[in-house]
Design a protein around this nucleic acid. Structure first.
Length: 592
RNA sequence: CGGGGUGUGGCGCAGUUGGAAGCGCGCCGCGUUUGGGACGCGGAGGUCGACGGUUCAAGUCCGUCCACCCCGACCA
């Protein structure tokens, strides 16, 4: 490709609305342009990188038996109604009516589309196991797109779906994906870790998220450096230190004027936060026979801990959870800021399992300006559910080995999920087994967003001058720069560069040829910005030395390639880069 | 949805007490220059986010709306 005709302009300054490095650089280097909030155009450079990323995905999916297909972006509402998600999902789902007034859906994911087709196509156990995948556009009307390509509304995703007779079959396909995903990220040179994640209400017994660790990430993870335990904060467990046992003292009402937060209360009474009980009111939505029902929930964790809403949802078997508003709290007979578990009605009380172990806590008195001292679980109140609903944080003890865990931020670049039979049962996607009985297909779903992956790579590989793309995903392999503007040998420089462009291309090497009439500084700076791994420079100076200058983007040193060796040497350098990446792939163990 | 911020040429920005819209980069032409974002001269390009109001006069003041960014809520 000749840069003189490339649809991409580099920018000396990043648009003011870009904040993180990958966003700024991808825009400055001319890879992407924003069309609206969370909606981006992939310019030719980005498109080439994305195609490479997607071809790596194809390759790894094919290796584990995947069949590529393509499912529609626009779905009839019926298939989403069949699984109930038409009602379950809120405004995040894009909906519209076609000309005949039929409700239509913009695909946010393709479980519905898969089961819709599989339902009719798969009838016998003889057809299973099977794995299909596609690379397709999704629309999720996220309330807050951010960070360039990291979090967008319209995006492309590789999603695969495994279909099995039984859970044992799913285990195999899940393990295949677990490894394949490490291969994909490895071939993109992106360091990731797999962490256990929430399986939610869809059943299943396992889900992993592939996380790229970076401060710009929006998920919080807990990692144990000692034993390797890792989990999304949503489900992370931890060992809770049991407090000293004390004799339960008499309950006592004390005046605590204006003390509405735990911090204020602890300060006021001069006690540690761990001697208080934190009350959190939530409203849980539950699906019942008669439709959706809301239930006020009173959750209690110790004052020094935070409520983990995911754990609470799972404990309740609820569909979703939202903070209660003051009116709802008052209606239940509680006083916001001074709420007490003592003496409430019509409310589900969920208590963290550390609370019964913690004697003589300070809790609200259900009266403005008053708290109770020495509240004891069992004696003063009882819960409907006692379980772990506290959020793990930095420094908490690892559930496996007890070492202090680290809390880090990460971007979720992929996930794998044992769906089980939730979808297949919902739509009647069944097969006839060898014994003649009809059984639901056991499914798994597995996704990787290609744009988010590109952004993560850009985030990981850049310096103050620009991007440093790994060879496997760089838009081109070689950036050929000709400096024919000089007095010295200017005609010859142009000829050699032109010939080299032809020869390299003929040798199957992907070349971006900077044939523009620009000064050397401009060309070098643009090359650094775009971040193609190998730069070849043809100039009067290099010709005097008998060849062209080679420089790897990630190294400082330059070397001279003799003219008649350029093709071979270039190929050798590139092969080295590819081998380094392929050689870094590892076999991973999936713990059961 | 709550809090904060920003909307002026492709990008970055200035625009005072209201008085005929500017700068840098980029773009076009001519010339000089040519190994790390060169220089001179001459140009093109803007319904100042939209609508309404106040005023002799609005980029500037008032109102409503919209878009985009950041924090939070949310996130199959």
């Amino acid at each position: 490709m000749r840069m003189s005709s490339l649809l991409s302009q580099t920018l000396r300054e990043a648009p003011s609305d870009a904040e993180i490095a990958s966003h700024k650089l991808l825009v400055r280097a001319g890879y992407i342009r924003q069309l609206a909030a969370g909606i981006f155009t992939s310019m030719p450079l980005a498109k080439r990188s994305l195609t490479k990323i997607e071809n790596i995905m194809r390759d790894e999916m094919n290796k584990i038996g995947g069949q590529e297909m393509s499912m529609p972006v626009v779905h009839p509402a019926e298939i989403w109604q069949a699984t109930g998600r038409w009602w379950k999902v809120g405004p995040e789902m894009g909906r519209f009516k076609d000309r005949n007034g039929r409700d239509m859906v913009l695909a946010m994911t393709h479980e519905e589309a898969v089961v819709a087709v599989v339902k009719d196509e798969v009838q016998s156990y003889r057809q299973l196991p099977m794995m299909v995948y596609h690379i397709q556009t999704k629309w999720r009307d996220d309330p807050r797109p951010r960070a360039g390509l990291i979090r967008v509304r319209e995006f492309t995703m590789k999603d695969s779906y495994s279909l099995d007779r039984d859970w044992e079959g799913l285990d195999i396909q899940y393990a295949n994906h677990y490894q394949a995903y490490f291969n994909i990220f490895g071939r993109c040179k992106l360091p990731v870790i797999a962490v256990k994640s929430d399986v939610g209400m869809m059943g299943g017994n396992m889900a992993h998220e592939y996380m790229y660790i970076t401060p710009v990430g929006e998920d919080t993870l807990l990692l144990c450096d000692k034993c390797g335990y890792s989990a999304n904060r949503q489900i992370a467990e931890f060992q809770k230190t049991k407090p000293h046992q004390e004799t339960p003292l008499d309950r006592e009402k004390i005046a605590t004027p204006g003390m509405k937060t735990i911090a204020e209360l602890a300060e006021f009474l001069d006690i540690p936060e761990s001697k208080t009980a934190k009350a959190v009111f939530m409203v849980a939505a539950k699906q019942t026979e008669g439709g959706e029902v809301e239930q006020l929930v009173f959750a209690i964790v110790r004052g020094d801990m935070d409520l983990n809403e995911t754990k609470l949802v799972n404990a309740l078997g609820a569909k979703s959870l939202r903070p209660a508003v003051d009116e709802e709290i008052k209606a239940a007979g509680a006083v916001p800021g001074y709420a007490s578990p003592v003496g409430l009605k019509d409310i589900v009380v969920v208590v963290d399992d550390l609370i019964p172990e913690s004697p003589n806590l300070v809790a609200g008195a259900n009266q403005e300006g008053y708290h109770f001292k020495n509240v004891n679980y069992g004696r003063d109140y009882k819960a409907d559910i006692v379980t772990d609903i506290a959020a793990a944080g930095d420094g908490d003890a690892c559930p496996n080995c007890g070492a202090a865990m680290r809390a880090v931020r990460g971007v979720e670049v992929g996930n794998i999920f044992k769906l089980g039979t939730w979808y297949s049962e919902a739509v009647g996607a069944t097969y006839q087994d060898a014994d003649g009985t009809e059984k639901p297909i056991v499914m798994g779903s597995y996704g990787i967003g290609s744009g988010r992956l590109l952004a993560s790579i850009a985030e990981e590989y850049h310096d103050e001058y620009g991007l440093i793309m790994p060879v496997t995903v760089a838009p081109y392999e070689v950036h050929l720069v000709e400096l024919s503007g000089g007095k010295q040998d200017s005609e010859k420089v142009g000829e050699v560069a032109e010939q080299l462009y032809q020869d390299l291309t003929a040798a199957g090497i992907e070349v971006l040829f900077d044939d523009r009439d620009e000064s050397p500084g401009v060309k070098f700076n643009d090359a650094d910005l775009i971040g193609i791994p190998l730069r070849l420079t043809v100039g009067g100076r290099s010709l005097q030395n008998g060849g062209v200058e080679a420089k790897l983007r990630h190294e400082k040193e330059k070397s001279l390639l003799l003219l008649d060796e350029v093709i071979d040497r270039t190929q050798a350098i590139l092969n080295g880069l590819y081998k380094e990446i392929e050689g870094s792939l590892k076999t991973v163990e999936l713990e059961s």
